[in-house]
Amino acid sequence: MKPKIVSFTLNGRPVDVMVRPMTTLQNVLRRQLELTATKAGCRQGSCGSCTVLVNGEPMAACLLPIEDVEGQEVLTLEGITPLHGLHPIQEAFFENFAVQCGYCTPGMIMVTKALLEREPRPDEATIREALSGNLCRCTGYQAIVQAVTDAADRLHGNGGVS
């Protein structure tokens, strides 16, 4: 199949990429655009390390043909990371020791971003459900769940709850 141009918005900027059909968004991000925050864990859609937001919804970039994001808005971890310092969700992960090897972290953070936009103050069960497509081999999840709760506080105030 012949290469073609796919246009979409990436981290707030328009991009056009020349790709072979059915190339995954993951490969376009990591290999073509060299945006490697989006990880490549299982490449089978089961680990969540490649999670990006497409129009605000978490998607596994490893299963997404690039044609499917034509005209859509894609947000990766690079897109939420400020030039200096960290995004409040990143701060929360850092402060709560929710990162060990770090390979699951970008996916966890992108899911957290989508969750907290939909639900500013999620309870623990909601957090675990939202993260259920994301595997972590190191932390045992407890610190990650704490980090998401902390991130909600950082983004939306602690609502008088200490």
Binding site: G41, C42, Q44, G45, S46, C47, I127, R128, E129, L131, S132, G133, N134, L135, C136, R137, Y141, I144, V145
Partner: peptide
Amino acid sequence: GFNEYIVPGPQ
């Protein structure tokens, strides 16, 4: 593959 190798998730 990794899909069929069971590891625990957040829940």
